[in-house]
């Protein structure tokens, strides 16, 4: 048995007759027993990767093995080792929560008695016992997501694919789900997690690969990525573009990576936020410039992309808060 739960080399998959290169030669080694993060915006190839590894799609070229089994040659062996859950929460709306889990258990060829016991156990653990006998179309978004994850866990697979499991969830549900994932990994499960959130990857993943347009643009531990990037973004807002241009000359050496200037705003990526902020203020003050605003924030996926590729993510990457607010409104 290998130490890697997933190994793939030069995976290529295109769509629309080759016009879209969803995966363009990606190689991965996912060590067993930890969370491995695939970070990237919409359309970067994360979901295509998960679909290939879970035998839903076939790659055009390249190889992939799951626990030593080739996903193209022995998909039936791979399917017995994996669980799949994601942002689309694919549950059968006309069935109850219990019936959904029972169906998945049966289709995993488990014994009926075991399926029933395991389904009840999972419903209990995911706080769905009270709703167990209600059709899932009456479930809230968060409940569906939990049931979807429960369905992926019915057969207790040693490898779990989680495709943007917290996209669209409110902060509390997100925290809960993170707890669940950490628990699973403690029990020996390997998790391949895709996410658009740097925070999520940072919290859960031991190792990360950053994808952009189907290509790996960075890999390493979250600490390594952040060291490359700085841990804090210092945003300085000036009154005019001329002021911003003068200010940029004064503070640019404080940034770990080349600072980003956009109109009247300058963004510096730094390690020690408050100290650098104080230093920047002194320099600006000494030059008799005034600031319109100053903010310190965590780097986002956008910052990672700017740093790594020099371009912003093509998609508008929604923050958790944006989506939560939209959900609350609707």
């Amino acid at each position: 048995m290998t130490d890697f739960a997933v190994q793939c080399e030069n995976l290529v998959r295109t769509f629309r007759e080759g016009q879209v290169r969803a995966l363009d030669g990606v190689s991965l080694n996912v060590p067993s027993g930890q969370v491995f993060g695939l970070l990237g915006p919409n359309g970067s190839g994360k979901t295509t990767m998960v679909r290939i590894l879970s035998t839903i799609l076939k790659p055009e070229s390249g190889t992939a093995t799951v626990m030593g089994h080739d996903v193209v040659r022995h998909p039936e062996r791979v399917r017995r080792l994996i669980g799949l859950a994601g942002q689309y929460a694919t549950v059968d709306e006309s069935l109850t929560g219990f019936e959904n889990l029972r169906m998945i258990g049966k289709l995993n060829h488990m014994e009926s008695a075991v399926v029933v016991r395991r389904s009840r156990e999972l419903l209990e653990q995911f706080g769905l016992s009270d709703a167990a006998n209600r059709p899932t179309k009456t479930y809230s978004g968060g409940m569906r997501r939990r049931l979807d994850l429960a369905a992926a866990l019915v057969a207790q697979p040693p490898l779990l694919f989680l495709d943007e499991p917290t996209t669209g969830l409110d902060p509390q549900s997100r925290q809960d789900l993170w707890g669940v994932i950490e628990n699973l990994v403690e029990g020996g499960t390997t998790v391949l997690l895709t996410t658009q959130y740097l925070e999520e990857a940072d919290r859960l993943a031991k190792q990360l690969v950053v994808l952009d347009h189907g290509k790996t643009i960075a890999e390493g531990t979250p600490a390594e990525l952040k060291a490359q990037l700085g841990t804090t973004v210092l945003a300085l807002t000036f009154n005019t573009q001329e002021d911003a241009a003068r200010g940029l000359e004064l503070v640019k050496e404080l940034s770990n990576v080349p600072p980003i200037a956009d109109g009247t705003i300058i963004e510096l990526t730094v390690n020690s936020g408050p100290a650098v902020a104080a230093d920047a203020l002194r320099r600006i003050d000494a030059d008799h410039l005034t600031l319109a605003g100053l903010a310190l924030r965590e780097p986002s996926l956008d910052d990672v992309f700017l740093t790594l590729t020099g371009h912003k993510t093509d998609d508008v990457v929604e923050t958790a808060t944006d989506e939560h607010q939209r959900k609350a409104r609707s």
């Binding site: 156990e121 653990q125 057969a155 207790q156 809960d176 669940v180 699973l184």
Partner: peptide
């Protein structure tokens, strides 16, 4: 949602049984 004992379920793994 309870996050305890999720990983260490009491139910034995039976789904990987031989299908031959």
């Amino acid at each position: 949602m309870s996050t305890d004992n999720l990983a260490t379920s009491k139910t034995p793994v039976t789904s990987l049984a031989d299908h031959g």
